[in-house]
Simulated scan of single mutants.
Amino acid sequence: MSTPLRPDRPSVEAAQVRARLTALGLPGIIDVHTHFMPQRVLEKVWAYFDSVGPLVGRPWPIAYRTEEAERLATLRSFGVRAFPSLNYAHKPGMAAWLNEWSAGFARQHPDALQSATFYPEPGVADYTRAAIDDGAQVFKVHVQVGDYDLADPLLTQVWTTLEEVGTPIVAHAGNGPAPGRHTGPDGVRELLRAHPDLTLVIAHMGMPDYDDFLDICADHPRVYLDTTMAFTAFTEADAPFPRERLGDLQALADRVLFGSDFPNIPYPYLEAVDSVIDLGLGDDWARAVLHDNAARLFGHIGA
């Protein structure tokens, strides 16, 4: 499908996204990778993307740089029925108050999955347990930005707790868009050797190490992949998905989840949806990815 539309005509784009869902017989989308943050944090994130050109070698314009109320309305207009805030900590002292903000955001917006995060620091096990007890439905970790080892001893009890309760963790652990000291598949393999029953959602399909993360997912029945930015023209230019692995991706039909990175994407949301549908893996596969798998993982939300 062609997606020439830029997101300066939101009502037209929204109608096009919803038309895709109608054609598939879906009630909506469950997007497992969106970001809503305290304003001062979001401004710093946007400043990072504004300067990310030297890091990735090309500009990264943010397509949906609007006020929070407008961003929420835009996302809902696309037919998104559930979405997380996915704050993440990059230094000590941030995670607990980000969790409080995310909990308040979820209370204010019932279609938001209550999100939480953590960082290797004293007290992390306590505030992680508190977030779970407060209703956290998904955690986010960002190994590249946080610059920490998933095997940090300070996180051992955190992983044990999350393994026991089964709360999903969206983990940006891959080497894209640029590698960090602790990114890559080896760190995830080490984590899963110690905690094989973690429910991990590998963000961005683990790009650019798709092969490794497809294999990890195949070997671990509680590991999922999210499609965030994968398969789009922006990403395919530098980190193309290996077409010889499409059969393996199709075989993992029950463990691939749609993610967008809204609002921080450099192209229309429609392109993220079309990039999944246009893989040609079938309507059943597309329905599972865009809605059904996440509905099952998070307890039939968005039905």
Rank of each mutant, 00 (worst) to 15 (best):
L252A: 12
D283R: 08
V141Y: 00
L21E: 11
D8C: 13
T74V: 05
Y88M: 04
I62V: 09
L297E: 08
V41Q: 01
R6G: 10
D261P: 15
E271S: 10
F258P: 13
H204F: 01
P54L: 08
D212I: 05
F118R: 01
T235M: 13
V143W: 03
L154E: 15
F78N: 02
A286M: 05
F118L: 06
L86P: 11
D209N: 15
D261Q: 13
W97R: 07
L246F: 03
G302N: 10
G206H: 04
D211G: 15
V143M: 07
R20M: 03
A130I: 02
F231Q: 11
L113C: 10
N99P: 10
V17N: 01
T232N: 05
S85M: 12
S102V: 12
P168T: 05
V273M: 00
R40T: 05
A112F: 06
V165M: 03
P179E: 02
V45R: 00
F105Q: 05
L191Q: 10
A272M: 05
S85H: 08
I169M: 01
G206D: 01
S2M: 13
R189I: 07
V201R: 01
W285Y: 11
T156L: 11
A136S: 07
E271Q: 15
T128R: 11
A47L: 10
V45Y: 01
R296N: 11
H195P: 11
D111Q: 13
Q144D: 06
V52M: 15
P208K: 07
A82Y: 03
F49P: 08
D212A: 15
R6S: 14
T235C: 07
G135W: 14
V201C: 02
L113E: 13
